[in-house]
Amino acid sequence: MVGKSPYEVLGLKREAGPEEIRKAYRKLAKEFHPDLNPGKPEAEARFKAVSAAYTLLSDPEKRARFDRGEIDESGAERPHAAYRGFAEGAEGAKYHPEGAIDLGDLEDLFAAFGAGARPHPGGRGFRARGADRRFSLAVDFVEAAVGARRRLQLSPQESLEVAIPAGIESGQVLRLKGKGGPGLGGGEPGDALIEVEVRPHPLFRRVGNDIHIDLPVSLPEAVLGARVSVPTVGGAVTMTIPKGSDTGTRLRLRGKGVKGGDQYVSLTVVLGKSEDPDLAKFVEEWGKSHPFDPRRGTFPR
């Protein structure tokens, strides 16, 4: 509508008198009033243009200024806060309750419109189970291993406490009965279906109910044995590294896995600072009297 002169909007000639302006406005305003045309945004746009045009032309002073080119066609526009915007929101209910139509009971709805779905004698009315609602929930590796309670936000108004059973794996679906959409006509509500995704852990890997972990040990710890602290899903425990361990040595912590499974600890011997003159000197002497080829027999010659 921008750029159309108020005379064009109201379908008038420039010399139209006040009574003509008023008549033209009333005719168009009735036609396009947003409260008489709910759900038609184009009618609201027309109505705004018509109102703006009328506001301008019905005021002799403004009309004169427009005719003289002092103000443009939007110069006098006053925003119209259509009642419709409120009427269809929550606050509108006070002026027009849904009244005779009870949507909680579809039979009433159909009856209100005189249509079918009338219950047959002895028959049941229309009932339907509510829809299932699907959610996804990411849980930490350790929470999934030992179990946890997590609060899941279903919507801004609604949250739910979810019990995550110990040992759950990615892709498993938890079903919370009755937490889905409401049923119709007395039907039972649907369920909430929660697909769980277990986040990977930087240290732990899971194989069935066993947990695997790589543990770095120093040369003295490997050669001489030691007691070291090892993380498990239940917290850190102390473990004995037997004397003479090597890279690849696998130790088992019984019962420290998931639901009674075990934790396997694979050792990796780490030299640390690679150029140590003392160590180099010792190994040079030691190597002379202890010839050893770890590749012997492992590669075809």
Binding site: E88, G92, H96, P97, E98
Partner: peptide, 8 residues
């Protein structure tokens, strides 16, 4: 009535 119906 119209708005009540539209809300329903």
């Amino acid at each position: 009535q119209l708005y009540g119906l539209r809300r329903a």
